[in-house]
């Protein structure tokens, strides 16, 4: 995907916040699904859904409980208030839609191309370098955190209770930190006075090519256009079409 198409999709997805309406929110959903599927990022879509589904489900349940009147046990009323077009849960859903687009744009960058892609998207060299380095470390940390959690559970050191998790917070942090960060490398880089680390990256950046796929770029641009049409430019058209149906 061309960096310009990424930028266009990112900017156009902010149109989701222009209209606080359930219809437009629902219309944006197929665009996002389409963008994922037509760019061949089905696995990324699954990963994204695994990430956002618990947030949405937990929020829906909590809001349902908050709205539920325990004296009358009006389940229907609580359900309607939870999914009302102006409800906070719908706001959260809109946020999740927006962030799922950002997820596609950033996680969809091929390995090793974050730095040149960000540069071509307009980020400064320092920002792009920091982002690329941090992203590399964070990917390792996320995996390590899951592994540390599983390891502590498997060894019987931590039980699934909340109290046990609190007691073992230090252990999880320590194991994750030790397992994930290659401190030696970082220190070596820091102490490497006048080294070629930064300039090397600069030199590589000038030569680095970003893999741009025409199909992916076209899909991203079409999705960006749809976002603008459904949320900003053609509200009346969309409403008329929906009304006629």
């Amino acid at each position: 995907m061309h960096p310009f198409a990424r930028l266009a999709l990112a900017v156009s997805s902010s149109a989701l916040f222009f209209k606080h309406d359930l219809i437009h929110l629902a219309l944006s959903l197929p665009i996002i699904f389409g963008a994922y599927l037509f760019t061949g990022k089905a696995r990324l879509l699954l990963m994204c859904m695994k990430m956002v589904a618990p947030v949405l489900v937990i929020s829906a349940i909590v809001w349902f409980v908050v709205y539920l009147d325990f004296r009358t046990l009006d389940f229907g009323g609580a359900w309607l208030r939870t999914f009302d077009r102006t409800s906070h849960f719908v706001e959260l859903a809109r946020t999740v839609e927006f962030t799922s687009v950002i997820f596609l744009l950033l996680r969809g960058i091929p390995d090793g191309e974050i730095l040149p892609t960000l540069r071509r998207m307009g980020a400064t060299h320092f920002l792009a370098t920091v982002f690329a380095n941090a992203e590399a470390q964070v990917s390792t940390i996320s995996d390590s955190a899951l592994q540390s959690y599983t390891a502590l559970r498997a060894q019987g050191i931590m039980s699934p209770t909340w109290l046990s998790k609190c007691k073992n917070l230090g252990r999880i942090i320590a194991v994750t930190w030790t397992a994930s960060l290659n401190v030696a490398d970082a220190r070596r880089e820091t102490k490497w006075r006048r080294n070629g680390f930064y300039s090397h990256q600069t030199a590589n950046l000038e030569r680095a090519a970003v893999s741009t796929n025409r199909w992916e770029t076209s899909v991203a641009l079409v999705a960006a256009l749809f976002f603008i049409v459904t949320n900003v430019a053609g509200l009346e058209i969309v409403e008329n079409v929906l009304g006629s149906l």
């Binding site: 956002v52 947030v55 946020t95 962030t99 950002i102 997820f103 982002f131 964070v138 990917s139």
Partner: peptide
């Protein structure tokens, strides 16, 4: 990065 890693609302 947290948005990409675990929490979609942190943005």
């Amino acid at each position: 990065l947290s948005v990409m890693a675990f929490n979609p609302v942190l943005f």
